[in-house]
Nucleic acid binder design. Structure first.
Length: 436
RNA sequence: GGGGGGUUUCCCGAGCGGUCAAAGGGGUCAGACUGUAAAUCUGAUGGCGAAGCCUUCGCAGGUUCGAAUCCUGCACCCCCCA
């Protein structure tokens, strides 16, 4: 999709109907400016962890939309800014990451971003940059003279990110974090100089940093750059999207299995599905409307959640990840554990605790189901195991265990060496019989 | 300094010499129901076991055939009067 003077779609209209536009620095002219010809837009990602999370996905999607619309996206990873820590939206001073951790995080995040953008499609090919490449060369004195001179402290003090921290008496704000906005501001100027990037996108908490960059560009280069922010993705109950009892929902399959990722969306509250469909999928307005209409007719089927989970999981984990997640879902909700190999089981039950037992435990009379539940950790004591079985809450390979006399033998093995135990509706554990 | 009350099983909280593994509630775990939700209902809830046995009621001793329950000392907590 090579972009010439004619653009394949109106990006501003696209983002608007998705309600992804929270604020812009020029409501009057930005839509027209974007429609005129291909532009270059950037969004930044901080290497605070070795994976992006769901919250980052909104910015990623925005870059994708820009690219689809014929513009050129730049994904910036904050090798330099990550060393400082952005105070925006943070209630307290952050601990600095070590250089090694930072380097590993950067590499991981760069790899993740690769899959969301097209880096080889002519004029609108995406770019990946690391601000450490230009910030690292700056000397302190040089930076103060060239950049710091243009920042009136009284203006900096009015930024929300700074002010909210100064108002609190229990936490402070270090000079380091206070200076963060200078770095991000300079990034914007640098990307303008280097790549003609004139627009920065980010979450609504980035407003102060974005406008700081625009101010700096005006002073240093006498140009008018643009900024736009999107709403932060939150749930209707106020909680952050992508936070679960067990922690953050990561995009990395190592940190959050495709199954859990898929399940998060399946379980999403009805009132949040619409927003997520608009924010996190590329379905068009008609299709989303159709999905939502159908969902309202029969909320029990949770068609909207299913569609959302399908789309987002496919986007993040690819068709294979989606397939694994779906297969795992079927099994987790009671489907027969049939002819699966150890490797498949390993994938499906990636997050499930497993224990190793010597294979000869299955020989002779076999392994008592009570001991099996106890040793797998599903029951804290043999009494508890007994109870669970008596009450009909124990399952072997998803078949209910009928009596406490049941013993496991080789005939219960699935795959090469695995027995799938379950207690209650969805508490699973694997037993792996090895050796001998 | 003087006087009084407390410390119970995951939590709160009954118990006041045997029938106490210890009422009740919460939580938790199963089951039913359900939209993989919420609410509700049912059952279970120290450990090992077929009966039965073992370990628990702040800590250490003692009285008794027998103690969470009585006595003595110790530790911690709370309240009242100075």
């Amino acid at each position: 999709m090579t972009a010439r003077e004619s653009l394949p779609m109106d990006i501003f209209a696209e983002l608007s109907w998705r309600q992804l536009v929270h604020q812009t620095t020029d409501d009057q002219n930005l839509p027209r400016w974007l429609a005129e010809r291909p532009r270059t837009v950037y969004a930044g990602f901080d290497p605070t962890a070795d994976s992006l999370q769901v919250g980052n996905l909104v910015a990623v999607m925005i870059l994708r939309h820009f690219q689809k619309a014929g513009h050129r996206p730049i994904a910036l990873v904050g090798g330099a800014t990550g060393m400082i820590g952005d105070p925006s939206g943070k209630s307290e001073e952050r601990n600095l990451l070590s250089v090694d951790v930072l380097r590993a995080n950067l590499a991981a995040i760069e790899a993740q971003l690769q899959r969301f953008l097209d880096f080889d499609c002519g004029a609108s090919s995406a770019l990946m940059v690391n601000n450490h490449d230009w910030m690292g060369r700056f000397g302190y004195l040089e930076f103060l003279r060239d950049v710091g001179k243009h920042f009136p402290v009284n203006v900096m003090l009015t930024k929300d990110s700074v002010r909210s921290r100064l108002q609190r008496t229990d936490v402070g704000l270090s000079y380091t974090e206070f200076s963060y906005m200078l770095l991000q501001a300079y990034d914007f100027v640098h990307l303008y100089d280097e790549y003609g990037c004139e627009l920065q996108a980010g979450g609504s908490d980035q407003w102060g940093n974005i406008t700081a960059g625009i101010d700096l560009a005006r002073r240093l280069c006498s140009v008018q750059l643009y900024g736009m922010t999107c709403p932060l993705l939150t749930r209707s109950d106020g909680a952050k999207m992508g936070k679960t009892a067990s922690g953050t929902l990561w995009l990395s399959p190592e940190k959050t299995s495709p199954y859990h990722f898929y399940q998060y969306w399946i379980n999403l509250d009805d009132s949040d599905v619409g927003t997520c469909l608009r924010f996190l999928t590329e379905l068009g307005p008609e299709e989303i409307k159709a999905v939502m209409d159908e969902h309202r007719t029969d909320p029990g089927r949770r068609g909207a959640q299913r569609r959302l989970a399908t789309e987002v999981t496919r986007l993040v984990h690819g068709p294979d990840g989606l397939a694994t997640a779906r297969q795992a879902t079927e099994i987790f909700f009671g489907a027969e554990v049939g002819e699966l190999s150890d490797a498949q089981l390993q994938g499906i039950f990636a997050d499930v605790p497993s224990s190793q037992l010597p294979r000869d435990r299955l020989a002779g009379e076999g392994l008592s189901i009570i001991d099996a539940l106890f040793e797998s950790g599903l029951a804290k004591s043999k009494g508890e195991a007994r109870r669970t079985i008596t009450q009909g809450g124990a399952y072997v390979n998803n078949r209910r265990v009928e009596g406490i006399e049941t013993c496991l033998g080789p005939q219960h093995l699935v795959g090469e060496s695995t027995v799938v135990l379950r207690s209650g509706k969805k508490k699973y554990a694997l037993l792996r019989f090895t050796g001998g």
